[in-house]
Structures are given as C-alpha cells and as structure tokens.
Design a protein around this nucleic acid. Structure first.
Length: 273
DNA sequence: ATCCAGGATCTCC
DNA sequence: GGAGATCATGGA
C-alpha cells in the first residue's frame, strides 16, 4: 500500500515500543498484543507479510493520522521544532495495547532500552501464549495474576517486582475497560493510573500517549528534560511542573508528537548532555 | 571500573 | 510540598 509521512524505521525505533526486531534495512518483525507480522518499507510503499490482520496493523501504525498537518502546525513559528522534525519526519505515534504499555513502561523506569527489551521478552516467553515459531504474545492480566514479587525478582526485574504485582492486581480488580479508558478525562485517567504503585507522572503520561490516544500529554524523562531545557530554556534548570506548563502552551494538543520528535532528536544526536 | 538508565517511592524537613 | 537517598541490574 502507498503511504506518506511515515517511516517504519523511525516509528519502531523511537522508543515507544519494545517488541520489534530489525531483519534487514527497512524490514522489521513486530509483535503487538497477540499478533506478529513482518513489515517492509520501500520508500512510499508498505508491504505486510500477510493480510489477515491488516486493519489491526493499519490502526496500530496510525496510518490514518494527518501527520502533514501535525508537523506543519508544530513547525509554525518554531525553528527548533522544525529542525527536530526534519531528523525524524516519519515518526508515527503507535496505538498500543493498554496492559502491554502499562507493564512495559513500569519496567522501563530507571532502565536502559536494551535491558527493557530483554526483560519484556523474558516475561513474554515465560507467561505469554506461543503464537507461532517461538513468537510469544504479551501475557494477559489473567496469565500474570498469580506471579509473585519473588518470582519477578528472580527473573531480574529487581525493585520493579513489587510494582508489577500491584499493577496486575489493580487491572484485574478495578475498571480499566476500553470504555473507561476512552471516556475518562485525561487528568482523571492520569490520576487513576498513578494510583498504581510504581506508576508516577512519567509512566502515566507514556500510557496516556502510547495506549490511550491522549496526544496532548508530554512525558518527561531524563532525555526530554535535558533537550528541552537545552533548546528552549538556555540550559537553565526547570521544574517538572514548569516544563509541563511550557510544553502545554507551546505545543498544545500536539505536545505528545512534539515530545516524540524531541526524544528521537536527542537520542540520535546525543546532545543536550 | 564506575556511571547511568524513557523513575518512583520513602524519608526527612 | 520540595530536596535527597535508595532501589536491582547490566550495558556502555
């Protein structure tokens, strides 16, 4: 199929998802929820290894998003953002599964991306359904309901074991239904997410952005913190609350996209450190 | 070897 | 309600 304003490489490698494997240049195996696929991109042509879940993958990749409009809006009167966007003008924000995103970003805290990927893979192999050829689905909340903190620690999750136990428990006992996830106002949903032990502002914002379509949120990690203050605040130290205020004013309803461009920009250039 | 990671929590004040 | 220590682990 024909696509514009989309890069498979930039989209899967920009740190929002963890279950992918680069097969060749511009060809990736992606596992999301309980589905696996191989996707190839040749310039403006995207091809899928099979057509059985095409609607799912088109939705997942956010191919219906108007990225030309988003990029144009963010670039307006902002040469810094214009520069950041030019480094990764094909990034899309994926529409990921809620539970998978919740667990993945709890694991992500104070951790390196290669190790995050390893731990998630370990979790899927231990508790996820074998889809085909040793490709494992992300475990369901039910599949994890009896896993103990000690077992998580034995697998290498460290202090995050306690957080995972609480997250699984809360998902299994309180209302995180798709209806609730789509209807609660962003701030209320954020508060509800942060009631889970191990979910703070940053992890909550990642879930809101990557799994709940709340594109106005602006997750701030160490990298975004550095790059933002470097590019927009003359390297001055800036409180988290103030950073959120500025991002909201500056980027408005597209703050989440801006954050993703900045994150990719920082990590590729290794600047701002 | 020492530092650090897509942070959150706990403990002080 | 804000600053500082602490938490497990392994990649760089």
């Amino acid at each position: 199929m024909k696509i514009t304003d989309f890069s498979l490489k930039e989209t899967v490698e920009c740190g929002q998802c963890f279950r992918y494997e680069k097969l060749t240049e511009n060809q990736y195996k992606i596992i999301a929820s309980n589905k696996v696929i191989i996707i190839s991109q040749n310039q403006d042509t995207l091809s899928f290894s099979n057509n059985t879940n095409l609607d799912f993958w088109k939705h997942y990749l956010h191919l219906d998003g108007d990225y030309a409009h988003i990029k144009k809006t963010l670039s307006q009167n902002d040469s810094i953002m214009q520069e950041a966007i030019s480094f990764a003008s094909g990034i899309h924000l994926l529409r990921q599964d809620f539970f998978e995103t919740l667990i993945s970003f709890i694991i992500s805290q104070n951790n390196h991306i290669p190790r995050i990927r390893r731990l998630i893979q370990l979790l899927c192999e231990a508790y996820g359904e074998d889809l085909e050829n040793n490709n494992y689905a992300f475990p369901s909340p039910n599949a994890l309901k009896n896993v103990t903190e000690a077992e998580y620690r034995a697998m290498g999750f460290g202090f995050r074991g306690r957080y995972l136990v609480d997250a699984v428990s809360k998902v299994n006992t309180t209302d995180f239904s798709p209806n609730t996830l789509s209807n609660l106002p962003t701030l209320e949903l954020r508060k509800k997410l942060m009631s889970i032990v191990g979910v703070g502002e940053k992890v909550a914002d990642c879930i809101l952005l990557f799994a709940c379509g709340r594109y106005e949120v602006f997750p701030v990690d160490v990298w975004v913190n550095r790059i933002y203050s470097h590019l927009y605040a003359n390297d001055e130290k800036i409180s988290l609350k103030e950073l959120h205020n500025q991002a909201s004013t500056r980027f408005s309803s597209f703050a989440g996209f801006a954050q993703q461009y900045l994150f990719y920009y920082t990590r590729k250039l290794k600047i701002g450190k």
